[in-house]
């Protein structure tokens, strides 16, 4: 990979950070080892979380992202990738596990969606512009007894997200958290 390619990726695709690592750790730890399972990572970015999951399971791991640069990088990491809007192109009940590290930073409504990095980070005015539609739609693709692992920041509001999850028919349990100077990251486990 040339320096130019590397620089393009770093400006166009969210690279793994503390939030990615926490989500990957939790999913890998809690995963039941069933090779017949199918696992989806939504908004995979670099493919890091999906790649980590692939290493610990024989289950089918699929990654999706809106961003064409992201799906290319994820595929380059060996992850089966689909360019998609959240879960819209997947079959009903297709996945036993769905993981998502969403764009969650609350941002000024004056800001335009003008580049891929902003799409990767910004959760709109309340930080839930992507999380809310995800919660409304993910149940359709989740198999009976399936679980969702959703990374949430204190900047977005864990209670608010858990409440939305409840409205979408999920029970939510915090299964891990980690504190940083400006935020606490929590992984919520959601089940129907």
């Amino acid at each position: 990979m040339t320096l130019r390619d590397r620089r393009d990726i770093e400006t166009d695709v969210y690279q793994p950070a503390e939030d990615s690592q926490l989500l990957a750790d939790v999913v890998c730890e809690r995963l039941a080892a069933d090779p017949d399972d199918a696992i989806l990572e939504v908004g995979t970015g670099s493919g890091y979380v999906a790649g980590r999951i692939s290493e610990v399971t024989d289950a089918r791991v699929v990654a999706s992202d809106l961003n064409p640069h992201a799906v290319r990088q994820a595929r380059g990491e060996g992850v089966e990738s689909v360019r998609a809007d959240l879960v819209s192109p997947f079959a009903n009940d297709a996945f036993d596990v769905v993981a998502f590290n969403p764009p969650y930073l609350p941002t000024d409504p004056e800001n335009e969606w003008d580049d891929w990095m902003e799409r990767a980070l910004s959760g709109g005015e309340d930080g839930r512009a992507v999380i809310d539609p995800f919660l409304e739609r993910v149940g359709r693709v989740l198999a009976p007894d399936g679980v969702v692992y959703l990374l949430v920041s204190s900047l977005t509001g864990v209670d608010e997200v858990a409440e939305r999850a409840g409205e979408a028919g999920f029970s939510a349990v915090a299964v891990a958290d980690e504190s940083f100077p400006f935020e606490t990251l929590t992984v919520l486990e959601l089940f129907e």
Partner: peptide
Amino acid sequence: EDGIPNLLP
């Protein structure tokens, strides 16, 4: 394209 289905509406 390049092995990746583009299933955006």
